[in-house]
Design a protein around this nucleic acid. Structure first.
Lengths: 145, 145
DNA sequence: CTCAATCTATACCGTTTTGGTGCAGTTTTA
DNA sequence: TAAAACTGCACCAAAACGGTATAGATTGAG
C-alpha cells in the first residue's frame, strides 16, 4: 500500500529541478536528490516523455522543468511513474471482480473507489511549488489535505 | 499503490463469515468468497492468529468470527494481512530518509504521513457490519469517508 | 475405539514487480 | 573535432506476490 521508491525519487527530482531554477545535468540532479545516478537518468527520461521536464543535449546540456512548478502537481508526477492511483485492483478496467455481493456490486469496490479518488484529489491539489517555495508553510499544505 | 490481493480476499472472507453467522468450514468459505481454497486456508489462519476469527478443529469444525462484525473494522482486517497503511516508506521506522529538504524534514514525508493516517482513519471507521448488513446503505457508508 | 473430517504448520515455487546497472549510440557546442 | 551530455535498450538480482503441497494434530460421529 505504498508509492514505489521510483515515484518517491521522481518527486525529489522534480523538486530539485524546481529549486535549481535553470538547467542541471543528470549527475548534479542525482547528487542533489540523493538518487542513484543511472536511476536518476531513467526517471528523468520518463519525466521528459511525460512533458514535465525538458532536456537539452550536448555539452552544457541538461534538464530543466518544462512547465512552471505551480502547474506540476504531486499527482501528475506520481501517476507518470506509477500506475494511476487505485487502492483496489477491482477498480481497474481489465480486472473482473470475482465477487458480486448483495449490495449492488461489491461494497469494498465502491469504498476503495472513493478512497482512491479522494487520495488522488488531494495529491492533485499540492503543487511542486507548494513543496518547494519557502514562502509556503508546511502547515498550510497539510491543512488542505 | 494498492492493497494486496490477499488483503482484498481477507475482507471478502471475513464478510462471508459475517453473513454466514455460524461455523463454516474452509472449503465453504473458499467457495462463497471466491478465493482459491488453499489460499483461503492460509488467510483464515492469519485471521485466527490475529484474533478476528475463531476456529474449531475436528469433524464438524470450521471457522467463525471471534468478535461481533460491528467491532471489526476494514482497517483491522487489512493491517492484519498487509503492513500497516503507509503510503511512503519514509514513514517506516526502519527506513532512514536520505533526503532532508529545507523545510524542517522532508515535505513529502509529512504530506504522505498525513494522507496515510487519513486513509487509515477512514478504513478504521467502516466495520464489517456496515459492509454486510443490508440495513446499512452504501450511500451512508460512502458519506462518511 | 477408530476413522474421517477438519484445522495447523511449514515449506516450497513460479511469476511479476521493483530497483537498479551497463553500454553503445547520438547530438551539441566549446 | 572531441568532450560533455542526453537517449535507447537491454539486462540483472532481489524481493514481493499469489498460490500450492504435504505431513501432522485434533476432534467428534458412528
Amino acid at each position: 500500500m505504498r508509492l514505489t521508491q521510483e515515484a518517491d525519487y521522481a518527486l525529489r527530482i522534480v523538486s530539485t529541478l524546481a529549486k535549481g531554477g535553470g538547467t542541471m545535468d543528470s549527475r548534479t540532479v542525482s547528487v542533489k536528490a540523493c538518487v542513484p545516478e543511472r536511476f536518476t537518468v531513467k526517471i528523468l527520461r520518463k519525466l521528459v516523455l511525460g512533458g514535465i521536464v525538458a532536456s537539452k543535449k550536448g555539452s552544457a546540456g541538461g534538464y530543466m522543468l518544462a512547465v512552471s512548478p505551480d502547474e506540476i502537481t504531486m499527482l501528475s508526477v506520481v501517476e507518470l511513474i506509477d500506475e494511476p492511483i487505485s487502492i483496489s485492483r477491482c477498480l481497474d478496467g481489465e480486472y473482473e471482480c470475482t465477487k458480486n455481493n448483495d449490495k449492488s456490486c461489491c461494497v469494498f469496490h465502491m469504498i476503495f473507489a472513493k478512497l482512491s479518488s479522494g487520495l488522488a484529489e488531494k495529491l492533485g491539489s499540492i503543487t511542486i511549488a507548494d513543496a518547494t517555495d519557502d514562502s509556503v508553510s508546511i502547515e498550510s499544505i497539510l491543512e488542505k489535505i
